[in-house]
Amino acid sequence: MSIRQTNFDLKEEIRDYWSRRSQTFDLAFGHRIPRGPEFDAWQQPIRDHLGPTPLRVLELACGTGEVTALIHDLGHDVTALDFSEAMLSVAKAKHAGKDRLRFVLADAENPMEPDACYDAIICRHLVWTLTDPAKAFGEWHRVLKPGGTLLVFDGDWAKPTRLGRAAAWLIRRIDRFCGADRHYDGAMSERHSAIMSALPFGAGLRPDDLIPQLKQAGFVDFEISSHGPIAKAQRRGANLRNKLRTLVYRRFILVAKSAGASHGGEA
């Protein structure tokens, strides 16, 4: 399957892909964040890096609003942004009637929000999908207040770890004998791969790839922490196939600070 190479066409392909997945997205392991140990594990880095004082937070690519709940439950004012109307409709229904919460239909690479208006930006599994990372990071720096926090949950989805290759082999065997998990990228996995191959981070996303570009956009004070506590919580109560899925790829949590009000400065 081929993907047309202009950014516009690629963005439309990505939008359509995620929109088609919106109604079943929460059924896929690793996307829904159930209350309990997993919810607490995802929320802990937000607690650690944003602190107890209520802040203005921009959540990019909010999807069905799972991470939105993590942020909002800590008392922050949240603007949750996504460029898929279908995803936003699910998120809005999930969070109907809540105050301190605004949903916006917009592109995470061009959020169209005022300068220096947010204390923090949070995104999960977004960065690897960016079609123009340098532009996106410049925009994120622009809308953050000086000293504001960028918190990124992501991973290298292109290259399994050594242990991950063994885990992926076992997953394929389980799929063969038990039937494929139709909610885990399912019938659109070929389409997913085609989109990924056309992206700047399609060959893999690692902190060493990300930090230089964020520095160029004006971010400083980088901290990388392990996704391990989240993966451990995900394995609690999961079946064997889903436990194995937590081992396939190397995931990470990256935190950075906005250096100041100027756009595109060197760190």
Rank of each mutant, 00 (worst) to 15 (best):
Asp77Arg: 14
Gly75Asn: 09
Ala167Glu: 10
His49Tyr: 14
Ile14Glu: 03
Asp181Pro: 05
Pro54Ser: 10
Leu58Ile: 07
Leu247Met: 13
Val104Ser: 12
Cys178Thr: 13
Arg176Met: 07
Gln234Leu: 10
Asp40Cys: 10
Val78Gln: 10
Gln43Glu: 12
Phe252Cys: 04
Gly186Ile: 02
Val104Gly: 07
Leu170Met: 13
Arg173His: 11
Glu266Trp: 12
Gly202Glu: 04
Gln5Pro: 01
Leu150Gln: 09
Arg124Gly: 06
Asp119Thr: 07
Trp42Gly: 03
Arg15Val: 09
Arg241Glu: 12
Pro111Thr: 04
Thr24Val: 11
Gln23Cys: 00
Ala167Pro: 09
Glu38Asp: 06
Glu38Tyr: 03
Ala96Leu: 09
Ile230Ala: 05
Lys92Trp: 00
Asp132Thr: 05
Gly237Trp: 15
Pro37Phe: 01
Leu151Tyr: 07
Glu59Cys: 06
Ala166Val: 14
Ala93Gln: 14
Pro200Gln: 10
Pro45Ser: 02
Glu38Thr: 15
Ile122Leu: 14
Glu38Ala: 06
Leu130His: 04
Glu85Leu: 13
Val255His: 13
Arg32Lys: 14
Ser189Gly: 00
Thr79Arg: 11
Glu12Lys: 15
Ala231Cys: 12
Gly51Gln: 11
Asp16Glu: 15
Gly186Phe: 06
Gln234Tyr: 02
Arg4Trp: 05
Ala168His: 13
Pro114Gln: 09
Ala28Leu: 01
Lys243Cys: 14
Thr68Cys: 12
Leu199Asp: 10
Ser189Asn: 06
Leu50Asn: 10
Phe177His: 04
Leu244Tyr: 03
Val78Tyr: 09
Arg173Asn: 02
Glu13Asp: 11
Pro111Ala: 07
Pro52His: 07
Asp115Glu: 02
Leu144Phe: 08
Leu210Ala: 02
Thr246Phe: 01
Lys257Pro: 02
Asp209Trp: 04
Leu240Cys: 03
Gly265Thr: 13
Val67Ala: 05
Ala96Asn: 09
Ala136Met: 11
Phe137His: 02
Val248Phe: 10
His227Cys: 00
Phe222Lys: 01
Pro133Tyr: 08
Ala69Arg: 12
Lys92Ser: 05
Met196Asn: 05
Pro34Tyr: 10
Gln5Trp: 03
Met1Gly: 12
Phe177Asp: 01
Ala61Asp: 06
Gly164Pro: 04
Asp99Gly: 06
Phe39Gly: 04
Ile71Ser: 03
Leu50Pro: 08
Asn7Val: 03
Val90Arg: 01
Gly30Glu: 03
Trp42Val: 01
Gly36Phe: 08
Arg124Gln: 13
Ala203Glu: 10
Ala233Glu: 04
Ala187His: 10
Leu60Ile: 15
Ala158Ser: 14
